[in-house]
Design a protein around this nucleic acid. Structure first.
Lengths: 152, 152
DNA sequence: TGCAAATATATGTACATACATTTAATGTAC
DNA sequence: GTACATTAAATGTATGTACATATATTTGCA
């Protein structure tokens, strides 16, 4: 993928301010990263949100997780964890059963098939093929600082 | 909105590397910005993608734009411009008519109602209520540099 | 005890994304 | 000038997001 400065990518002549440019640049780069990762994941038949839920479940394994816990850990708090778990259940990557202690809650558990799939995918995520590259460690730390500061 | 470091926000203990943390931080902050702007726009009855299309159309006005041009300028190239224009047409914010020269293409034109709506919204976007704040001009320029470098 | 409030999850609806396919119109090669 | 490829836009389908509402269960308190 040949990459250009953000002005060229969206064929816009100029931005009003450096702030406005950074805003567009943030959304654009975030989309870019998501799409890149999603392409890598396609052969494995799981979407990015589904992958993220599987990761959380592996973190809990062999303990189950409730849907509430999934929501709490998900990047996008308002997304619909129930329906993402639906898709994973159909694929046999997780199981879901009512918790005996509190029958309102549901125990979601990653299956062996799910664990095996994640193992296959491990080298993709965080590997050199995806994510933040091209930056030095110091630049990456600075990026983290700037992002945290934006949300202050 | 009280904001915390990214580790606390998604209740994760630690990240493997600074790069991994920056990746999550990018997606999280981008979502955060989008949601913030979308909340501001809600009272006006247009979504963020719809707003962005209206902005492009105003940039062309009084000339019309084709759907291809919209796609070219949109942040998310793979999104479905036709259907976003559908929604805007229903709301009377744009008109759509077949172009006489090339009957494959469609001239999309922002209406007076659309222009008036944008005028109302102008102070929100790029104003102090949304977008990149808290950063100095220099920090913002550095952020732009880092983002461009990621996509290199 | 009994009943209202709170909690956990699921469901409904509108919108958008991602991507494949379709339809119509234009361009091009022969 | 007909046949085939190309282009522009729309449509179909699966997924996800955002938000409101529904349903079941538990908790807490009068």
């Amino acid at each position: 993928m040949t990459t250009m400065k953000i002005e060229d990518e969206i064929k816009q002549t100029a931005f009003k301010t450096e702030y406005h440019k950074a805003y567009i640049n943030m959304l654009y780069t975030s989309n870019w990263l998501v799409q890149e990762q999603s392409n890598l994941f396609k052969p494995f038949g799981v979407t990015l949100p589904q992958y993220n839920v599987l990761r959380i479940l592996r973190g809990q394994h062999p303990k189950p997780a409730t849907v509430s816990l999934l929501i709490e850990r998900m990047l996008d708090k308002t997304s619909n964890a129930s329906r993402i778990v639906d898709k994973l259940e159909v694929k046999g990557l997780v199981t879901r059963k009512q918790c005996p202690n509190d029958r309102r809650t549901v125990d979601v558990l990653i299956t062996d098939k799910g664990l095996a799939l994640l193992k296959q995918m491990d080298d993709l995520d965080g590997g050199s093929k995806t994510g933040i590259r091209n930056l030095t460690e110091q630049e990456t730390a600075e990026l983290n600082r700037l992002l945290d500061k934006i949300r202050d």
